[in-house]
Design a protein around this nucleic acid. Sequence first.
DNA 1: TTTCTGACACTAG
DNA 2: CCTAGTGCCAGAA
Length: 105
Amino acid sequence: VAADKCRYAERVLDVVDRIPTGRVLAYGDIADYLGEGSARVVGHVMAISGHEVAWHRVLRTDGSCAPRVRARQVVLLRAEGVPFRADRADRVDMAAARWDGNSVK
DNA sequence: TTTCTGACACTAG
DNA sequence: CCTAGTGCCAGAA
Protein backbone atom coordinates (compact mmCIF):
# COMPACT_ATOMS: atom_id res chain seq x y z
CA VAL A 1 0.00 0.00 0.00
CA ALA A 2 2.81 2.34 0.88
CA ALA A 3 4.41 1.32 -2.39
CA ASP A 4 1.32 2.53 -4.23
CA LYS A 5 1.68 5.98 -2.76
CA CYS A 6 5.34 6.01 -3.56
CA ARG A 7 4.60 5.01 -7.12
CA TYR A 8 1.92 7.65 -7.43
CA ALA A 9 4.25 10.37 -6.21
CA GLU A 10 6.92 9.12 -8.57
CA ARG A 11 4.45 9.21 -11.45
CA VAL A 12 3.46 12.76 -10.63
CA LEU A 13 7.08 13.83 -10.51
CA ASP A 14 7.71 12.04 -13.79
CA VAL A 15 4.89 13.89 -15.52
CA VAL A 16 6.11 17.21 -14.17
CA ASP A 17 9.62 16.39 -15.31
CA ARG A 18 8.29 15.69 -18.82
CA ILE A 19 6.79 19.17 -19.10
CA PRO A 20 8.86 21.00 -21.71
CA THR A 21 10.27 24.43 -21.00
CA GLY A 22 7.79 27.21 -21.63
CA ARG A 23 4.90 24.85 -21.01
CA VAL A 24 2.73 24.32 -17.93
CA LEU A 25 0.18 21.92 -16.43
CA ALA A 26 -2.56 22.21 -13.85
CA TYR A 27 -2.82 20.10 -10.69
CA GLY A 28 -6.13 18.74 -11.88
CA ASP A 29 -4.65 18.03 -15.30
CA ILE A 30 -1.93 15.89 -13.79
CA ALA A 31 -4.44 14.04 -11.63
CA ASP A 32 -6.62 13.46 -14.66
CA TYR A 33 -3.63 12.45 -16.78
CA LEU A 34 -2.62 9.87 -14.21
CA GLY A 35 -6.26 8.91 -13.77
CA GLU A 36 -5.72 8.68 -10.05
CA GLY A 37 -5.87 10.80 -6.95
CA SER A 38 -6.95 14.42 -7.04
CA ALA A 39 -5.54 17.88 -7.56
CA ARG A 40 -5.00 18.20 -3.83
CA VAL A 41 -2.93 15.05 -3.69
CA VAL A 42 -0.83 16.27 -6.58
CA GLY A 43 -0.26 19.50 -4.71
CA HIS A 44 0.81 17.55 -1.64
CA VAL A 45 3.22 15.48 -3.68
CA MET A 46 4.76 18.67 -4.98
CA ALA A 47 4.99 20.06 -1.46
CA ILE A 48 6.90 17.04 -0.17
CA SER A 49 8.87 15.85 -3.18
CA GLY A 50 8.45 18.60 -5.74
CA HIS A 51 11.70 20.28 -4.77
CA GLU A 52 13.56 18.21 -7.35
CA VAL A 53 11.31 18.88 -10.31
CA ALA A 54 10.01 21.86 -12.26
CA TRP A 55 7.23 22.50 -9.76
CA HIS A 56 7.00 26.04 -11.13
CA ARG A 57 5.51 24.55 -14.29
CA VAL A 58 2.51 23.34 -12.31
CA LEU A 59 -0.29 25.74 -11.40
CA ARG A 60 -4.01 26.00 -11.00
CA THR A 61 -6.48 25.30 -13.80
CA ASP A 62 -7.22 28.97 -14.24
CA GLY A 63 -3.56 29.82 -14.66
CA SER A 64 -3.16 31.44 -11.28
CA CYS A 65 -0.42 30.33 -8.93
CA ALA A 66 -0.62 29.22 -5.35
CA PRO A 67 -0.33 32.14 -2.91
CA ARG A 68 2.39 30.26 -1.03
CA VAL A 69 4.78 30.33 -3.97
CA ARG A 70 3.19 32.80 -6.34
CA ALA A 71 6.19 35.14 -6.34
CA ARG A 72 8.69 32.42 -7.27
CA GLN A 73 6.20 30.83 -9.62
CA VAL A 74 5.79 34.01 -11.66
CA VAL A 75 9.52 34.70 -11.81
CA LEU A 76 10.45 31.16 -12.84
CA LEU A 77 7.67 30.92 -15.40
CA ARG A 78 8.66 34.22 -16.97
CA ALA A 79 12.24 32.97 -17.05
CA GLU A 80 11.07 29.81 -18.83
CA GLY A 81 9.32 31.92 -21.42
CA VAL A 82 5.79 30.97 -20.44
CA PRO A 83 3.17 33.26 -22.01
CA PHE A 84 1.47 35.40 -19.39
CA ARG A 85 -1.85 37.09 -19.81
CA ALA A 86 -1.74 40.72 -20.74
CA ASP A 87 -4.55 41.51 -18.32
CA ARG A 88 -3.11 39.93 -15.22
CA ALA A 89 0.64 39.60 -14.96
CA ASP A 90 0.17 37.14 -12.10
CA ARG A 91 -1.55 34.63 -14.36
CA VAL A 92 -0.42 32.35 -17.15
CA ASP A 93 -2.14 32.06 -20.50
CA MET A 94 -3.26 28.47 -20.04
CA ALA A 95 -4.78 28.42 -23.51
CA ALA A 96 -1.29 28.71 -24.98
CA ALA A 97 0.96 27.43 -22.22
CA ARG A 98 -0.90 24.23 -21.36
CA TRP A 99 1.23 21.22 -22.28
CA ASP A 100 -0.31 18.93 -24.92
CA GLY A 101 1.04 15.82 -23.23
CA ASN A 102 -2.55 15.01 -22.43
CA SER A 103 -3.51 14.85 -26.09
CA VAL A 104 -0.25 13.84 -27.75
CA LYS A 105 0.59 11.12 -25.29
C1' DT B 1 -10.38 8.20 16.54
C1' DT B 2 -11.82 12.93 15.69
C1' DT B 3 -10.59 17.43 13.97
C1' DC B 4 -7.86 20.86 11.40
C1' DT B 5 -5.37 22.29 7.69
C1' DG B 6 -3.43 22.38 3.04
C1' DA B 7 1.14 24.48 -3.42
C1' DC B 8 -6.97 22.45 -5.39
C1' DA B 9 -11.62 22.62 -8.14
C1' DC B 10 -16.32 23.74 -8.89
C1' DT B 11 -20.69 26.20 -8.16
C1' DA B 12 -23.34 30.09 -6.48
C1' DG B 13 -23.94 34.97 -5.19
C1' DC C 1 -13.66 40.84 -11.06
C1' DC C 2 -14.37 39.03 -5.87
C1' DT C 3 -15.79 36.05 -1.71
C1' DA C 4 -18.22 31.92 0.44
C1' DG C 5 -19.48 27.14 0.72
C1' DT C 6 -18.65 22.17 -0.43
C1' DG C 7 -16.09 18.00 -2.03
C1' DC C 8 -11.80 15.96 -2.53
C1' DC C 9 -7.40 13.03 -0.49
C1' DA C 10 -3.69 12.95 2.77
C1' DG C 11 -0.91 14.15 6.84
C1' DA C 12 -0.37 16.13 11.60
C1' DA C 13 -2.03 17.13 16.43
